[in-house]
Design a protein around this nucleic acid. Structure first.
Length: 346
DNA sequence: AAGAGTCTCAACCGCTCGATT
DNA sequence: AAATCGAGCGGTTGAGACTCT
């Protein structure tokens, strides 16, 4: 059984507000306030409107000092930064922009800012990916000539995720294609933290916890303040935490000496996470040098609809730069097996 | 000029959370 | 402890404006 409606749907007016309705609502609230009860307010002032509709109209258009349109570059930057930090918490973002409403910012992001940013990002990425992809394919050819794993498809189209079984078999055969350190880094790329640096939970962890567990509205401001503090202090983002561990309930990978079974089950779950968390996985395209967004398998279409929108591509440059750093630090003759391929600069 | 396609944004919907009973 | 209620939030919708062909 659903919740009882807040008002009689049949008797309330819907759709655009007339100037008369605006005047009635505005005049009343300016003189008497909302009375702390939006539901009762429309009846009190003779408006055939739902209380929620009155609240929205007041907050978004009638209250004083509201600004519409004409977003400045500075405001764009703030919105983008906060979106990257905390996601679609429009009310928190709006709180940092005086005169702006969450609805306005949400619309602005969805209709303009996102496209503007993605267009810019994708142009830059296209160039970088082309060279990156070429380099990785070269390394893969070297690797395949060195290790041929039974049961895998040698030239599978777009193998965005490595064959888990093959990786584990490689482990068993003594190949260090993915050693534990590499896996920790890989998991860190998926959005977690290992407590191996004695620094406690970082921004990503807190935001991840926030996202996963929810939070009271009173925490919003605290969260934002902490986020800004941590961002400004350039806290390390590469790490793995208990939140991430909880995403791999069957795997024991948090300890320093992961068992072979633990490794295997973790990799299996990693594949599952790849499917269930495209917003995290997409960022790994730099990891594998593949254009996941273009694949239609785990990429943009699903990511676009998740709660983070397609923000993954906003995070992409960081991952690319990680990888590029890695490449630069790699000896010219190092093979594909080198664990630094998986994102851990030596 | 007109029809089709796209974009914008005001408004609605359904949900969660915290307060109250 | 459970039920109920209102406030507030983020996602989505759809009408009108705008652009393209």
């Amino acid at each position: 059984m659903g919740r009882a409606p807040c008002c009689d749907k049949a008797s309330v007016k819907k759709g655009p507000w007339s100037p008369e309705e605006d005047a009635i609502l505005k005049t009343y609230i300016e003189q008497h306030g909302t009375g702390g009860n939006w539901i009762a307010l429309p009846q009190k002032i003779g408006l055939k409107r739902c209380g929620k509709s009155c609240r929205l109209r007041w907050l978004n258009y009638l209250r004083p000092n509201i600004r519409h349109g004409g977003f400045s570059e500075e405001e764009d930057d703030i919105i983008c930064s906060l979106y990257i930090s905390i996601g679609s918490r429009w009310s928190i973002i709006a709180a940092q922009l005086p005169g702006r409403t969450d609805n306005d910012i949400k619309n602005y992001w969805n209709t303009r800012l996102k496209k503007k940013l993605l267009g810019k990002q994708r142009r830059e990425q296209a160039d970088r990916r082309a060279s990156l992809k070429q380099e990785i394919m070269t390394k893969r050819e070297i690797n395949e000539s060195f290790v041929m794993v039974p049961g895998t498809i040698p030239h599978q189209e777009s193998p965005y995720w490595p064959d888990v079984q093959a990786i584990v078999m490689n482990q068993n055969q003594g190949s260090h294609l993915m050693d534990q350190e590499s896996i920790r880094d890989l998991l860190a790329k998926l959005g977690g933290r290992f407590y191996d640096d004695n620094q406690g939970p970082n921004l990503f962890t807190k935001l991840n916890n926030y996202s996963l567990e929810g939070s009271s509205r009173q925490d919003h401001q605290v969260l934002y303040t902490n986020s800004v503090d941590m961002l400004s202090s350039s806290a390390p983002m590469r790490s793995m935490d208990s939140t991430c561990c909880s995403q791999f309930p069957n795997s024991n990978y948090s300890g320093p000496n992961m068992s072979q079974d633990g490794l295997e089950s973790m990799l299996v779950e990693l594949g599952g996470l790849a499917c269930s968390n495209p917003q995290h996985v997409e960022g790994l395209e730099s990891f594998y040098g593949m254009d996941m967004a273009a694949s239609g398998s785990t990429g943009a279409s699903s990511a676009e609809s998740n709660s983070w929108g397609n923000i993954n591509s906003l995070g992409y440059p960081q991952l690319v730069s990680d990888y590029e750093t890695c490449l630069q630090s790699m000896p010219q003759d190092s093979s594909f097996e080198d664990s630094s391929f998986f994102g851990r600069p030596q």
